[in-house]
Simulated scan of single mutants.
Amino acid sequence: MKNKQLYLTLTIALLMVLLPRQVWAQPVPIPDIDLSIGQSENPTEVVDSVKLLVLLTLLSLVPAILLMMTSFTRIVIVLSFLRNALGTQQTPPNQVLIGLALFLTIFIMAPVYNDLNEQAIKPYLANQITQEEAQVRAAKPLREFMLDQTREKDLALFINLAKMDKPQNREEVPLRVVIPSFIISELKTAFEMGFLLYIPFLVIDMVVASTLMSMGMFMLPPVMISLPFKLLLFVMVDGWYLVVKSLLESFR
């Protein structure tokens, strides 16, 4: 009986392999995709293709633009300093800190993006201005925002290194000078804010460590005792409200 079942199973498997596929299933239609480059008699088709190419190029640069030309850098560095000062290791996790920094960046940069959309993107999509003019208009709101947050010392450094004449106004400062000046200014500001965040928690660590040493508890890690006190202090003063408020007001 077992041999008959085995022979039947092998026979069915052999038939499934040897018989045509149409016997067992209906054919599935496959779409025909044709990508070709040819001549166009309508200029608008060429313009649409160029717009698509520019859009794909900009999408590849979005991470760099988001990180280096907005408030994201300062916010995420300050939040990282705050977590290290608390000594909570991976709490909040990186995903939470980056998500908070991202949405705060969207909130801060919303007026800039609205100006950019009204002055450059909408007229360009409506074929009212050329691509070159759209780039000039789009750079103006970003330049104004970055220059407002850039120290004169950092801006002068890159102007001197670029060996260019001293600009008479903001519009004459090229983005290749503004962007690196803005980045190092943001790093300095973020480290200053991070240092100020460290001070109260450092005081708690020193008090706890001195108390444990005076009690002779040399083998007990001070971090285990100071962590609850730091969390209690942070919650009592509504730390997240104060940190976020300070970050938002620092861009005004």
Rank of each mutant, 00 (worst) to 15 (best):
A139N: 15
Q90W: 04
V46C: 01
V173C: 09
K122R: 13
P29Q: 10
T150F: 11
S36K: 03
L97I: 07
R74T: 03
F107E: 09
P200S: 02
K4G: 00
I179S: 05
I204H: 06
G87I: 00
V178L: 07
I77Y: 10
P123K: 09
V28Q: 14
Q95M: 10
P167R: 00
L61M: 07
P92K: 05
V47E: 05
P228F: 06
R21Y: 12
S226P: 13
G194T: 15
Y7C: 12
T70H: 01
I121C: 01
S36F: 12
L147H: 08
V78R: 04
L102W: 09
L56G: 10
P167Q: 02
P228N: 06
Y124V: 01
I179Y: 09
T105M: 08
L227M: 14
N117R: 12
L61N: 03
V237F: 10
P174K: 04
A13L: 15
N127L: 03
V243P: 04
A25I: 00
T11D: 11
N127Y: 04
A85N: 09
S185C: 06
L102T: 02
V136K: 15
A134F: 07
L102S: 13
N84E: 15
T70W: 01
M109Y: 03
S185Y: 05
R83N: 10
S40E: 13
S210Y: 05
V235L: 06
F229P: 01
D32N: 11
M215T: 07
F81Q: 11
L102V: 00
G87K: 00
A101M: 05
L202C: 08
L58H: 02
A101T: 02
K188C: 02
A138I: 06
Q89N: 11
L220P: 11
T11C: 13
E171Y: 09
T105C: 11
K4F: 13
R21E: 15
I159W: 00
T189K: 10
D238R: 10
T150S: 14
V47Q: 07
G99T: 08
A13G: 14
S181W: 05
V136A: 15
